[in-house]
Amino acid sequence: MKLGKVIGTVIATIKADGLEGVPMLIVQPLDRAQKPTGRPVVAADAVRMAGPGELVYFVASREAAEALDPRFVPVDHAIVGIVDAAEDLA
């Protein structure tokens, strides 16, 4: 899993089966120093509570399809948690 920042949202009414009601958010992946890295992705919000600008963590590939209920809907990135704090140790 990686850190990400919610930077936008996507509204789509015509979608593949299984995606009804699944919020789609634009997420900017972050590096270890929480700086943007790589291109933004559109991620399904599996916790359904991530808001704009929030720090989240997300999974990719098959695990993204496993994050939703019912599983195996066609998504390749999914937000699985909202970060309250990402603390450095030692």
Binding site: L3, A46, V47, M49, Y57, A67, V80, G81, I82, V83, D84, A85, A86, E87, L89
Partner: peptide, 8 residues
């Protein structure tokens, strides 16, 4: 560490 209360 990542502290998170809203998560899967």
């Amino acid at each position: 560490t990542v502290v998170s209360t809203i998560n899967h």
